[in-house]
C-alpha cells in the first residue's frame, strides 16, 4: 500500500519530528513545510498525494492554503486542529478540506484518516455505482437501497442525503455542505432540517437507530458515513 507522498504542513518542529519517522514507518514518503508559502510551493513542485495541514501557520491562515489548493486541485487535505478552534475547522472543511483530526491524536487514527482520504480519491476517479456497508447496499444507478436484500423505501430528499454521505464515506461532511447539496444554498443554515431528516433516515437504515453505526454524528461539525473498513 505504499508509495504515496504526504506533505506535512506544520510550523511546530516537534510535531514534524515525530510525524516524519511515524509516517515513513507507515509506508509513506514524507515531505515537510513550515509555512504556507513553502506548502504551496511544495504542492506545485513535489506533487504530493495528500496534505496534512495545521491551521495556525506563521505567514498565512491555513484556510488560505485550502482555498488556494482547491482553486486548481482536488488533492485530499486533512486538517490538524485544536478543539478550541472549532469554527476555523468547519470553515476549512466548507472550503473543501476533506477531513480533520484533533490534537492530540494517536498515529493509528491519523493513518486511518489518510487511508480513507486516499481511497476516496481513487473511488471518485473510478466512478462508484454501488456502495455496501454492514449489509446495507446502495445502487446509485437504480437509486435503490436494500438492507439484507430487503428494499428500504426512502423519500427523494432522504435518498439524496444518504447518497451525499455515502459518496464521502469515511469522511466528515459538514452541515453546510449537506444542506447546500440536498436542499439548496438558500437553506445552508437550516440545521433543524438535518436533525429531522437524519433522524428519519437512521430509523430506516440503521439496525439500532438509538446507537447509529452507519451515520455517525460529528458534534458541531457534521456527519460521517462509516466506510467499509474498520
Amino acid at each position: 500500500m505504499s508509495g504515496f507522498r504526504v506533505l506535512v504542513v506544520d510550523d511546530e518542529p516537534q510535531i514534524q519530528r515525530f510525524l516524519r519517522p511515524a509516517l515513513t514507518a507507515a509506508g509513506y514518503e514524507v515531505i515537510e513545510a513550515g509555512t504556507g508559502a513553502q506548502a504551496l510551493k511544495a504542492i506545485a513542485t513535489a506533487a504530493p498525494d495528500l496534505i496534512i495541514l495545521d491551521l495556525g501557520l506563521p505567514d498565512m491562515d491555513g484556510k488560505e492554503v485550502v482555498k488556494n489548493v482547491r482553486g486548481w486541485s482536488e488533492l485530499p487535505i486533512i486538517i490538524l486542529s485544536a478543539r478550541d478552534r472549532e469554527s476555523e475547522k468547519i470553515a476549512a472543511l466548507d472550503l473543501g478540506a476533506d477531513d480533520y483530526i484533533e490534537k492530540p491524536f494517536g498515529i493509528g487514527e491519523l493513518t486511518a484518516r489518510i487511508r480513507t482520504a486516499l481511497r476516496h480519491r481513487t473511488r471518485e476517479d473510478g466512478g462508484v455505482t454501488e456502495i455496501s456497508v454492514d449489509g446495507l447496499h446502495i445502487d446509485t444507478v437504480r437509486r435503490l437501497i436494500t438492507r439484507d436484500e430487503a428494499p428500504i423505501h426512502l423519500t427523494p430528499k432522504e435518498y439524496d442525503l444518504v447518497l451525499m454521505l455515502a459518496r464521502h464515506a469515511g469522511r466528515v461532511v459538514t452541515h453546510r455542505a449537506l444542506l447546500t447539496s440536498v436542499w439548496g444554498p438558500a437553506h445552508a443554515d437550516d440545521l433543524h432540517y438535518l436533525r429531522v431528516f437524519v433522524g428519519q433516515v437512521r430509523g430506516k437504515i440503521e439496525r439500532d437507530p438509538s446507537a447509529p453505526a452507519i451515520i455517525r454524528t460529528e458534534p458541531g461539525v457534521g456527519y460521517r458515513f462509516v466506510g467499509d473498513e474498520t
Binding site: E12, Q14, A22, A25, P104, F105, G106, I107, G108, L110
Partner: peptide, 30 residues
Amino acid sequence: LKTPLATITGAITSLRELGDKMDKSSRDDL
C-alpha cells in the same frame, strides 16, 4: 499545553504501532 501533549501522544502511539517498522535512530529520536 497541547503542542507538547500532541508530540508526546503522537510519538508514543507511533512507537507502539509502527515501532518495529522503524530503524533504531528514529525510535531513539522519538
